[in-house]
Design a protein around this nucleic acid. Structure first.
Length: 551
RNA sequence: GCGCCCAUAGCUCAAUGGAUAGAGCAACAGACUUCUAAUCUGUAGGUUGCAGGUUCGAGUCCUGCUGGGCGCACCA
């Protein structure tokens, strides 16, 4: 019996009881199960009595006692009892709990995939770094987080499109071109332009590819430098993100928003017109504004400047409308804390476009990565390029490390963590548990242990109960992670699961020592071992981390 | 000045509004002739920044303070 099945039965029983006792006004939607922190409290607990006692005029303890009595009669439930102020603790019988192992092995990689979001088409936009320079460790955080969020949402049943918005239009790109040209000619970078070795590298790569920027007239040279540099830089960026296993289905160029069709319209001009038709646009001081304050922004925003040029905000609006037109029920934006000011503006665009800013759009604002307490900055010379970080500590370690913290928690890295493959990184703990399941399975097979001779009731050791309890919890963790867009919950769960597995491994044996005979319990333990391996693998996969068979 | 985020063990951090707030690291004491010791067992470590409020119940929600991060353009 899975937790969701149990929950469903409890719901029916409770609703039936309410009806029979004249409380038809209460319609329960679900009964939430939670894992009691203390094992003594059983396998599952529900607070339903505490929640509804008030509305039916009884005290939670009495109601809990009545419901517990009812729940005790459910097949597969060994015991249900009321505790404390009104908790109902439920203990499943051993064979029922043990059967979970086989269910997991049978389900394989499908174990932990859900249908709760199966009606949704979700767009996840993340990283979206400017193609004017290399990405740093901060971008790696969004890459790890965004990709894992997409994986978790897919596991929850959603149809997910991942997307990277390329800021390839505007003044920054021109400055980029001028900077490359300056490096080619041995001149200083222009005011506000790009500096650093990578600019010189790009200049050299362009030269080596046979383009002689120095021979071109200045205006042409800037454009050529810009376009060549853009192609190279975007290629680098895609390579690094690909190596990092971050998936992007769509690389969306800002230029496509500016591009004019035969009648002189662009997606941006159409977006402005759309907003104007909806009545959210006004003219003032020679500029065109959107009344974003109607949607909670702290000030109205200019969309077309006095000189007729669109602001960056105009492109944002057009981009949002484009996503909407492509039919996504929800658009997720991952933003760094330094861009959190956009949230109100995006909400305003969504509202002005006729979307519900609270459900059709969600902004995940993450804290920045700091290095030993100091913010990454070029001036301080402590920028760590994403590519170098991957080379130094590996994709698995880096992804896992960056994904195991909530987005709104600042991550403070120190140089040692970055450069040493140390056991401080819990990814090894989890991966080692997975590798161990494989070693045990290999050994068991050689010893003639046969998982098809499975009898669930033999899995009754204390550590087996604990391990089965963890395994059973996995779909619930995926559900929570998907609901809250918090992949770190997967990582924390895996660490807990790995701990339960290691303790089980330590306390029991799948392969009996040579003096002992092979018994029924050993066959059953092989199945439990495989189940643990399967869940570790499924979970690591949601984080984009490999599950090695040997370490 | 206004807005968003954060404050939990010595350090880095967890904790669906639930029961006795948990891990890792660091410290100390143990466990491999037996399936992987990258593991396990034990000890020690806390007024969850401060003050109120809501609730049967608050680290979690609300208000105010203190301290820190980030942002507040007809820049991109």
């Amino acid at each position: 019996m899975t937790p969701s099945e149990l929950s469903q039965i409890l719901l029916e029983k409770t609703q039936q009881w309410l009806t029979e006792n004249g409380h038809t006004e209460i319609q329960l939607e679900e009964i939430a199960l939670e894992r009691p922190k203390s094992r003594d409290h059983g396998d599952w607990a529900t607070t339903i009595a505490l929640k509804i006692a008030g509305s039916i005029g009884t005290n939670p303890r009495d109601l809990g006692g009545k419901l517990a009595e009812l729940f005790s009669g459910i097949p597969g439930v060994e015991e249900a009892s009321v505790a404390g102020p009104g908790f109902i603790n439920i203990r499943l019988d051993a064979s029922n709990l043990g059967a979970v192992a086989k269910q997991i092995v049978d389900a394989g990689s499908d174990y932990g995939t859900l249908q709760i979001n199966s009606s949704k088409r979700i767009n996840v936009e993340y990283v979206s770094a400017n193609p004017t320079g290399p990405m740093h460790i901060g971008h790696a955080r969004w890459a790890a987080l965004g990709d894992s969020i997409a994986r978790v949402l897919e596991a929850s049943g959603a149809d997910v499109t991942t997307e990277f918005y390329i800021n390839d239009a505007g003044k920054q790109m021109d400055l980029f071109g001028e900077s490359i040209l300056a490096a080619t000619l041995g001149e200083d970078a222009p005011e506000g332009g790009y500096k650093g070795e990578y600019v010189t590298d790009l200049a050299n790569r362009i030269k080596n590819a046979g383009t002689d920027l120095a021979a071109l007239p200045r205006e042409e040279a800037i454009i050529a430098a810009r376009e060549s540099g853009y192609a190279l830089q975007l290629g680098d960026l895609q390579k690094v993100l690909g190596d990092f296993r971050a998936r992007f289905d769509v690389w969306f160029s800002e230029r496509t928003l500016h591009a004019k069709d035969a009648s002189g319209n662009s997606k941006i001009s159409e977006a402005v017109e759309t907003l104007r038709e909806q009545g959210h646009v006004f003219e003032e001081d020679g500029a065109t504004w959107v009344r974003t304050t109607d949607f909670g922004d702290d000030k109205d925003r200019v969309i077309t400047r006095g000189n007729g040029i669109y602001t960056y905000f105009a492109a944002d609006a057009a981009y949002y409308l484009d996503k909407k037109a492509r039919g996504y029920s929800e658009k997720i934006y991952l933003l760094g804390a330094d861009h959190h000011g956009y949230v109100h503006r995006l909400k305003a665009i969504a509202g002005a476009a006729g979307d519900d800013p609270n459900t059709d759009l969600s902004c995940i604002v993450g804290q920045l990565v700091t290095l030993r307490g100091s913010r990454l900055s070029k001036r301080a010379g402590n920028i760590v390029e994403m590519k170098d970080a991957i080379d130094d500590i590996g994709v698995d370690s880096l992804r896992y490390w960056l994904a195991r913290y909530p987005a709104d928690s600042p991550i403070d890295l120190d140089a040692d963590t970055l450069t040493s493959n140390s056991n401080e990184n819990p990814v090894f703990y989890v991966q080692y548990a997975h590798a161990r399941t494989n070693a045990v399975a290999r050994k068991a097979q050689e010893s003639g242990i046969d998982g098809s001779l499975f009898s669930p009731e033999t899995l009754n050791h204390e550590t087996e109960n604990a391990l089965l309890g963890e395994l059973q919890q996995y779909p619930l963790i995926v559900e929570i992670a998907a609901k809250w867009r918090e992949p770190h919950r997967i990582a924390r769960y895996l660490e807990q699961l790995a701990g339960a597995y290691h303790r089980w491994y330590d306390a029991t044996r799948v392969v009996p020592s040579s003096a002992e005979p092979i018994e029924s319990v050993h066959h059953s333990r092989l199945v439990l071992n495989s189940a643990a391996g399967q869940v570790l693998k499924n979970g690591l996969n949601l984080l984009g981390v490999s599950a090695p068979e040997k370490m």
